[in-house]
Structures are given as structure tokens and as C-alpha cells.
């Protein structure tokens, strides 16, 4: 039986993150109304959007001068004793930049297992199982979890659309002694990116390139196609990490969330992190020579072919259409 599930709450620039909401939804689903769901909030909860906390049975607000600053290591450490001493079976952490630090650090502090990239957790007949999606979504692993507590880092989107009943939503407050705060890492502030001429979140047509483009010189082909379509070029993480496109052109959970009329995905495999950033586009068309690429699971139309063959043909067809018109 699940006794207690803990969810560390991430507040990012004044709002509780979607990743945290997913973790709370997962906790309610796995707890199945029996296990108590405890949410730990670092610092005073934000003024708005806190209804998501009602998914928890208990909301414990940790109070101190620095506790609300986004320092994952210090925040994870604050939970070590609280979790170790309170019959916690699971710690669920949402997938985000913060969660990617908190989950493994907390697992380390607790000497507990970490199960990351988890897309499904099943609890039946007192056996806890999880399915993890790794290798950019190309491989699944089923695991059985026997250790308590275990820390689980969820895959983005795993529990986004589930309907669950709210919890009891009882709020408690705990003062954290200043000496408990690990001050070896200090948050100094946010740095905004340099804005470009193009804001991809506002574009109606996006042509997105992934690793399949091969090399920077090939971007010209895609830029040419985007121009013909009247759209803008953006990219997945590998393309941005290579410096071929600026970070403001990156689509994905950690990049920009886009909802264009047309999302033309070229040479993109469809890793979960990327899909989270574009799945709500009105029309998704994917070109990838790998018929098994996960992007075809989210696309409306797919072309399993070499992009270097399809792009010139598509441009030609578009130009011919324009001339006819």
C-alpha cells in the first residue's frame, strides 16, 4: 500500500510550474485516494495559480529568508530529514531544469533509487512498476520498484491530461533554521535572452530542423523552403547546441512552446522533450527517413523519406502552385 507521496513544488518566476502540476496529478493517480500526497512549497506560495496545490492532501510551506530562491541543491537538502523520518514511499518530481537537479540530488541525499524519464507508474496488488522512455524516446524499460522511498523524475507530458480528484488541501507552515540552508550555491538573478527579429511563438508557419539536417551548410536548404512557405526556421536542441541556430529558436520543453498553424518537422526524431514544445500545433507534418521515428506518432501527416530528396520537390511544387495561382 502506498502510504505517502511527496511532491517538491517548483515556483518559477511567480508561478507554480506545469511540471509540478503533472507531478501532483501523478501522485493522486498512483496514490489512488489512499496514499497521502504531501506538497512541499519553498517560501510563500505565489499570489495566483495556487489552486493546483489543492491536489495535495497536505501543503507544507517551508519558510525562511532564502528558501524560496531557486537553488535546487539547498532545497533538495531541506527535504532529506523530512522525508527520511516520515514513511514516504515515493517522491515525484516534474521534469524541468529545476527538477533535473532536485530529483537526483534528493535521491543521493536519501541514498534512494532514482527512476528518471518515467512516463507511467502503475501500482497494483502492492507492486509498484514504472515504464521509462529513454534514448530520445526510442527505447522503453519496465522496472519494478521495491525500495522505499524511491525518487521518480517524470517525463514531460506523462500526466498532463489526466483528470483526478483534489486532495484535502490542508496548509501547514514550517520555519526552516537559517543554518539548514546550504549556502554554497547562490541564486543571483535571471538573465533574459537577447531578442531577435523573429519570435517563433508568434509565427504561423514553422519549419523545424533536427539532427537529421547533418551539417550547418544544409540549413540554407531549409531556410529557402521556409521562405517559400512564408514561415520561419527553428530547431530542436541538437541543432541549437551546435550553435547553428540561436537558443531563442529552440522548440521544446526547455525552449519555446509553439502552436503554429503549420509545424513542418524535418529530420526530427520526436524526443519527448521536443514534442512537449510543439504537440499543440494545428497541423504537424513530419519528414524523416526512419519510419519508426516517434515524431510520426504525434504528426498528422508523415513522409518517410530522405529530407534532401523531399525538400527540393516540395519547394518545386510550392513554386509551381504559386505560378498557377
Amino acid at each position: 500500500m502506498i502510504r505517502r507521496i511527496v511532491v517538491p513544488v517548483e515556483v518559477y518566476r511567480g508561478h507554480i510550474t506545469e511540471a509540478t502540476r503533472e507531478a501532483l496529478v501523478a501522485a493522486r493517480t498512483v496514490g489512488n485516494g489512499v496514499g497521502e500526497v504531501v506538497a512541499y512549497v519553498y517560501g510563500e506560495p505565489p499570489a495566483e495559480g495556487t489552486d493546483v496545490l489543492e491536489l495535495a492532501d497536505r501543503i507544507i510551506v517551508l519558510e525562511d529568508g532564502q528558501v524560496g530562491t531557486p537553488v535546487a541543491m539547498a532545497q533538495a537538502k531541506l527535504l532529506r530529514e523530512r522525508i527520511a523520518s516520515s514513511d514516504v514511499d515515493l517522491v515525484l518530481v516534474g521534469s524541468s531544469s529545476w527538477g533535473w537537479d532536485v530529483a537526483p540530488l534528493l535521491a543521493g541525499f536519501l541514498s534512494a533509487p532514482l527512476v528518471a524519464n518515467c512516463q507511467v507508474i502503475q501500482h497494483a496488488e502492492d507492486v509498484l512498476k514504472a515504464t521509462c522512455r529513454i534514448c530520445a524516446g526510442k527505447l522503453l524499460v519496465d522496472v519494478e520498484i521495491t525500495n522505499k522511498p524511491t525518487v521518480i523524475l517524470l517525463l514531460p507530458g506523462s500526466y498532463a491530461h489526466r483528470e483526478v480528484q483534489p486532495g484535502k488541501g490542508v496548509m501547514e507552515r514550517e520555519r526552516v533554521p537559517a543554518s539548514d540552508w546550504d549556502a554554497r550555491v547562490e541564486f543571483k538573478g535571471w538573465l533574459e535572452p537577447e531578442r531577435e527579429d523573429i519570435d517563433i511563438t508568434q509565427e504561423e508557419i514553422l519549419v523545424t530542423v533536427g539532427r537529421g539536417i547533418g551539417q550547418q551548410e544544409n540549413l540554407e536548404l531549409v531556410e529557402d523552403l521556409a521562405k517559400t512557405l512564408g514561415g520561419a526556421v527553428c530547431g530542436s536542441r541538437p541543432v541549437v547546441d551546435q550553435g547553428w541556430l540561436p537558443p531563442t529558436r529552440q522548440v521544446g520543453k526547455s525552449g519555446m512552446i509553439v502552436k503554429p498553424k503549420l509545424y513542418l518537422a524535418i529530420g526530427i526524431s520526436g524526443a519527448p522533450e521536443h514534442v512537449e514544445g510543439m504537440k499543440d500545433a494545428e497541423l504537424i507534418v513530419a519528414i524523416n527517413r526512419d519510419e519508426q521515428a516517434p515524431i510520426f506518432d504525434v504528426a498528422h501527416y508523415g513522409i518517410a523519406a530522405d529530407l534532401f530528396d523531399v525538400i527540393p520537390a516540395l519547394k518545386e511544387a510550392l513554386v509551381a502552385r504559386r505560378q498557377e495561382a
Binding site: 524516446g137 527505447l139 519496465d142 519494478e144 524511491t150 516517434p294 504528426a299
Partner: peptide, 16 residues
């Protein structure tokens, strides 16, 4: 620290 039960390729679920 956890028991690996199965490693497999995702079923081909092409919605496109």
C-alpha cells in the same frame, strides 16, 4: 537499485 523487467522498442503507433 530497481529490478529491470523488460527492455523493448516502443510499439509502432503511427498516428500520422
Amino acid at each position: 537499485p530497481v529490478k529491470i523487467q523488460r527492455v523493448y522498442l516502443p510499439p509502432a503507433v503511427t498516428h500520422a
